[in-house]
């Protein structure tokens, strides 16, 4: 269970142009389920996702993951939590250009000191499962949109993260690729992983695989649907 208690996030705090991106949000997210945050641009979805994924700290409030308080952890421990618990698929996927697909996928494992052959074998298995095995050596800038998205998913899962966080993962994809993505999400849930996403796309939050939809506006939660 992921629990947020009165979480607020301010940008430019105490300075001109202060922005209240998330405003006093409290909620609970079930494990082994697919949860989608929906809402217009600027509603605070991505910021909330960053706070849940330990990529940003709340200005106020508490975040607990399986009962562990993570919101006040120092950088080192927060990174450890992020590394062991979360895999991220960013809106623009954020693969590193110039590196091969395999190098990008193994990137999260680089600082762990694992046997490189084991990491590579794991990455190749993950790429094969996502239909990308033949492109492992290809620089990522030559991948198509759908391949790039699957590459980002492979990278997110290389350390076997139990929670996948995806920010607008289908924003740049056509209907067919969106459905293929949803199939992958369903498979991940069936493997026992938790998936938390943001999306503008009704095809996502109306999909059968989704267990909960949380609606946001102006940094607040305005609706929750199971």
């Amino acid at each position: 269970m992921i629990s947020l208690h009165a979480v607020t996030k301010l940008y430019n705090e105490g300075r001109p142009g202060e922005v209240r991106a998330v405003d006093n949000v409290s909620l609970e997210i079930e494990r082994d389920a697919v949860t989608v945050f929906k809402g217009p641009s600027g509603s605070g979805k991505t910021t909330l996702l960053s706070i849940i994924g330990c990529m940003a700290r709340p200005s106020a409030g508490r975040v607990l993951i399986d009962g562990r308080l993570v919101s006040g952890l120092p950088e080192r421990f927060l990174t450890e939590e992020r590394r062991s618990t979360f895999g991220f698929v960013f809106q623009r996927f954020n693969l590193i250009r110039g590196l091969s697909l395999l190098e990008n996928v193994t990137l999260p494992a680089a600082p762990l000191g694992e046997d490189p052959r084991e990491v590579e074998a794991r990455a190749l298995a993950r790429l094969e499962a996502l239909g990308l095995a033949g492109k492992a050596a290809m620089p990522v800038e030559y991948l198509s949109g759908g391949e790039t998205q699957r590459a980002a998913i492979a990278r997110a899962l290389i350390n076997d993260a139990p929670i996948l966080i995806a920010d607008e993962p289908t924003a740049n994809l056509d209907t067919e690729l969106t459905h293929r993505f949803l199939d992958i999400v369903g498979a991940l849930r069936d493997e026992g992983r938790t998936v938390i996403m943001t999306s503008h796309d009704p095809r996502i939050w109306q999909a059968d695989h989704v267990n909960a939809v949380i609606s946001m506006q102006d940094g607040r939660i305005v609706g929750e649907y199971a």
């Binding site: 080192r76 990174t79 960013f90 954020n94 990137l107 999260p108 680089a110």
Partner: peptide
């Protein structure tokens, strides 16, 4: 800077 942000997001810490 963005590359460092990505590395941190995927699990690298400051010392890495």
């Amino acid at each position: 800077a963005r590359e460092i942000g990505i590395l941190k997001a995927v699990g690298w810490n400051m010392t890495d």
